[in-house]
Amino acid sequence: MNPVFNMDAATMSPVALFIQADWVVKIVMAGLLIASIWTWALIVAFWLRLGKTRRGMARFEREFWKADDIDVFYKAESENTLPSARVFIAGVKEWRRSTAGGSIDKGGTRERLATTMAAASAEEIDTLSDRLNILATVGSVAPFVGLFGTVWGIMRAFTGIASAQNSSLAVVAPGIAEALFATAIGLFAAIPAVIAYNRFSHGVNRIEAALNRFADGFHTTLSRQLDGGR
Rank of each mutant, 00 (worst) to 15 (best):
K26I: 00
D22N: 06
A189N: 11
S167G: 12
L211N: 14
A85G: 11
I37L: 12
S167C: 02
G153P: 03
E124W: 01
V4I: 09
F18T: 09
E111S: 14
L113T: 10
A190W: 10
A189M: 07
V15W: 08
A67H: 08
A100V: 09
I27M: 13
N133P: 00
N80D: 10
R213S: 15
Y74R: 11
F144P: 06
A142S: 15
R86W: 04
T11P: 04
H219P: 00
G56Q: 10
L50E: 10
H219A: 15
S78T: 11
L211I: 09
A142E: 03
L17K: 06
E61N: 14
V141W: 05
I37Q: 04
K26L: 00
N198G: 14
V151C: 02
K106E: 12
V4M: 03
F188K: 09
G217K: 13
A193L: 11
S140P: 04
G175T: 03
F200R: 07
N80H: 11
G228D: 05
G107T: 14
A162R: 00
A184H: 08
V25F: 04
L128W: 02
L187G: 10
I195E: 08
A114R: 15
T221W: 09
V28W: 07
I89C: 11
L180A: 06
V25Y: 05
S201N: 14
V138S: 05
A67W: 04
K66W: 08
N6T: 09
Q225I: 05
S98M: 13
L187E: 04
S167N: 13
P83G: 12
A10R: 05
R112Y: 10
E123L: 12
E124P: 11
A16T: 00
G108M: 07
A142F: 13
R96C: 03
M155P: 00
A190R: 12
A10G: 11
A118C: 06
A162D: 11
W95L: 11
S168C: 05
D22P: 02
